[in-house]
Write a protein that binds this DNA or RNA. Structure first.
Lengths: 146, 146
DNA sequence: CCCACTTGTTGGCCCCACCAACGGTCAGGA
DNA sequence: TCCTGACCGTTGGTGGGGCCAACAAGTGGG
């Protein structure tokens, strides 16, 4: 409580620290993805498709936390590159069914490796135990905030 | 190498986890700051000024990791609100000297409290020990990527 | 006196996260 | 059956954030 004259700024604030660390992570990841002409949305969508199989665009958005409008643009881009296929749902004329092509699966594997290297660069200074703990703690936070 | 049919996606990728956790943090922080009509840049700049004292805009950018052009806009906004003062450097006609006003210091204190609450909300599910460890690990990463 | 460099400023770019509105479609209840 | 509410894809827009290029004015060293 002391209103001491000391500057006493808070480089230690966890939210700010997370912000800074994240900026680094974001930069590394975006940079790595950009080098292969991809963006984070591409990975989110491809990963969601790979994990859960074909789905409507709205479902894809819910899976990956993307807005419906962003899903449209991302599917457009991925379809242009042949990584994804969009076809009407015969059972519901409102929906499109989006599915991964073999080329898309290969691309996802490639992105996996690219991201793996980015992660390795990011966490380089940490021991294996520290990385595990970090992942665990982040999972706790994520799960809590659903 | 097994091309087993299993989906096997990597929600556990640390870089991606960090990305997700960060999105949460970013949302909480931006939301909290937005409620008091502030942005992250405002805090970065005010904190840098409070910690190191008056400085030229270029120096401010270097301190806080902001681009010179972004410093211009941020100083404009903060000056409009009376939180910051910009006056020419008598010793170097290229430079402006930016300094915090008392009102700006008060505002910074307020932002500190706002961010503190956001951080509390973010880290709610973690124990004190876990928070400490998280902060420590993040500091290691940041320092390494300096 | 040059020349290289810095500074503030303008303007632009791309990504990311959202929101509002629309026309078309679907399903359930009156 | 028709109405109504919900849902879907799509378009368009907003704002923050992180960058970069170019410029004129100014500075300092050789």
């Amino acid at each position: 409580m002391e209103t001491s004259g000391a500057p006493r700024r808070l480089r230690g604030t966890a939210s700010w620290l997370l912000g800074q660390a994240t900026t680094q992570a974001h930069r590394l990841v975006s940079e790595a993805l950009g080098a292969v002409d991809a963006r984070r949305y591409h990975y989110s969508l491809l990963a969601a498709l790979d994990e859960f199989g074909p789905a409507s665009q709205a479902d894809l958005g819910r899976r990956g936390g993307l807005d419906r409008s962003d899903v449209v643009a991302t599917v457009n881009e991925l379809a242009d590159k042949g990584f994804v296929e969009r076809r009407p749902d015969p059972g519901d004329k409102r929906r499109n069914i989006v599915s991964v092509t073999p080329s898309g699966t290969a691309h996802l594997r490639h992105l996996d490796r690219v991201l793996g290297r980015a992660q390795e660069a990011l966490l380089a200074p940490l021991s294996a135990a520290e990385r595990e703990e970090l992942v665990r703690v982040l999972n706790v936070v994520l799960e809590h905030h659903g």
